[in-house]
Amino acid sequence: MPGVTIDKNHCKGCELCVKACPQQVLGMSKQIGVKGYFYAELIDASRCIGCKICAITCPDVAIEVHTHGTSFALFEY
């Protein structure tokens, strides 16, 4: 099942990924990273389709996307 891991210290809480996610599976944590930003987190792993849009949007390369077996290829990146 596809999913993302978010580096909570690289994330600066800009929320662009949360807005960009077509499945609306990302949200902002109540915790803060090393720089004091609320970091983004995966709130509904089951509905993640591994489309990488969040990672593409992220200005801080804080998001890594992984998948199992077949993965969605909406576009070539």
């Binding site: 600066k12 990488k52 200005p59 998001i63 199992h68």
Partner: peptide, 24 residues
């Protein structure tokens, strides 16, 4: 089925947290 990484930091980019503002 093995977990496959399909998006990660490119090798040409260091692992440093940048000084740029959030959302820049």
């Amino acid at each position: 089925s093995k977990e496959k990484i399909i998006f990660t930091r490119p090798e040409s980019l260091t692992d440093r947290i940048t000084h740029y503002c959030p959302g820049c």
